[in-house]
Simulated scan of single mutants.
Amino acid sequence: MVKKTIEDRMFEACNYFLLTLVLVIVLYPLIFVLSASFSDPYKVINGQVWLWPQDFTLKAYSKVLQNQDILTGYWNTILYTVTGTALNLTATIMAAYPLSRKDFYGRNGIMAIIVFTMFFGGGLIPVYLLIKNLGMVNTFWVMIIPNLVSAWNIIIMRTFMQSSIPLEVQEAAAIDGCSNLQILWRVVLPLSTPIIAVMVLFYGVSHWNAFFNALIYLTDRDKYPLQLILREILIQSQMQEMLGVSEESLVAQIMDAEAIKYAVVIVANLPVLLLYPFLQKYFVKGIMIGAIKG
C-alpha cells in the first residue's frame, strides 16, 4: 500500500467536502418535496416544513387518486412513453446499424444529412403546418411521430456499434449464412445491451417529461399527458384569483392545490427514479464506450 502524503489527504478531504455539498444541494429539494407532500399544506405555505413532514397526512395522495384528470393523464403518459420508446428504439437501431457498416454505400452522405438536422430546423410554425397537413393534430401519434428519432442518439448508437462490436464477428456470421437482419438480431443486438439501455433511458425520460408537443398540438383533455395536468395544477391558484373566487373558497382551493401539486410531483417522477438504479450501470458503460472508442 502506498502511504498517502499530507497533500493527498487534504485533496481527498476537499473532494469529500465538495461532493457532500453538491449532494446536499441536489438532494434537499427532493426531500423537501417529499416531506411537503405528506405535510399539512397550511404549514407548507407558512414555511414550517424544512426537512421532516409536519402533521403527517395522506390527504394529498388520496385527492390525487380521486382526481380523474390526473389518473387519465398518468395513463396517457404511460401509453405515450411505452409506445414511443419502443418505436424510438426500433427506428434508431434500424438507422444506426446500416450507418455503422463500412460496406454500406453512401453512409457518409446520409450521416451528413442527419447531422445537418441538428443545426438547422424549419421552426415551430412550419412544423405545426406540416403536422396539421398530415392530419396528426389532436391525435395519439402527434406525441410520438414528430420525435421518432434523435440525430444525437443515432450518432451515439452508430459509434457504439462501430467501436464495440468487432467487424470480424459480423463477417463470421455472414460466412455462416446469416443475412444482414439475422446478423443484427443474433449478433449485434445481444452485444449492444449497454447502449440499448441508454437509449431506453434517454427516450423514456424524454417521453415521460414531454409537455410542449401536448401543449401545442392537443386540444382534448382526455389525451393530455400527466405533465400537462401538473402544469395546470401549478397555475391553478393564480387562475382562481383572477376569476374572483370568494375568500373562504379561495383559501380552501389554494390549500388543496398546494397539497396536490407536491404529491403529483412525487407521483410523476417516481417511475423514473425507480427505473434509473437498474439502468445506471448500463448507462455509464454505454456512454463511455460510445464516447471514447473509435
Results as ranks from 00 to 15, higher is better:
3 K>R: 15
4 K>Y: 11
8 D>L: 10
8 D>E: 11
9 R>C: 10
12 E>D: 13
18 L>C: 13
22 V>D: 06
22 V>A: 14
23 L>A: 14
28 Y>P: 07
38 F>Q: 10
41 P>F: 01
42 Y>H: 12
44 V>I: 05
58 L>F: 09
62 S>M: 07
65 L>C: 05
65 L>H: 03
76 N>E: 00
78 I>A: 06
80 Y>G: 09
84 G>D: 02
85 T>S: 05
87 L>Y: 03
88 N>Y: 08
99 L>G: 07
101 R>K: 12
102 K>P: 02
108 N>R: 12
116 F>R: 12
116 F>D: 07
118 M>D: 05
120 F>H: 11
124 L>V: 06
126 P>K: 09
126 P>I: 04
126 P>S: 09
129 L>D: 05
132 K>F: 09
134 L>Y: 01
149 V>T: 11
159 T>G: 14
164 S>I: 03
166 P>A: 15
168 E>L: 12
175 I>G: 10
177 G>K: 03
186 R>F: 14
188 V>A: 11
190 P>L: 01
190 P>H: 03
191 L>D: 05
193 T>R: 14
196 I>Y: 01
203 Y>N: 15
209 N>R: 10
211 F>M: 13
223 K>T: 00
224 Y>E: 00
225 P>I: 00
228 L>Q: 01
228 L>V: 00
236 Q>H: 13
241 E>G: 15
247 E>Q: 15
247 E>F: 13
247 E>W: 09
248 E>P: 09
249 S>W: 01
256 D>H: 11
257 A>N: 09
266 I>V: 14
266 I>N: 04
266 I>K: 01
267 V>S: 08
268 A>S: 12
268 A>R: 01
272 V>G: 08
273 L>Y: 06
283 F>E: 09
290 G>H: 02
290 G>N: 02
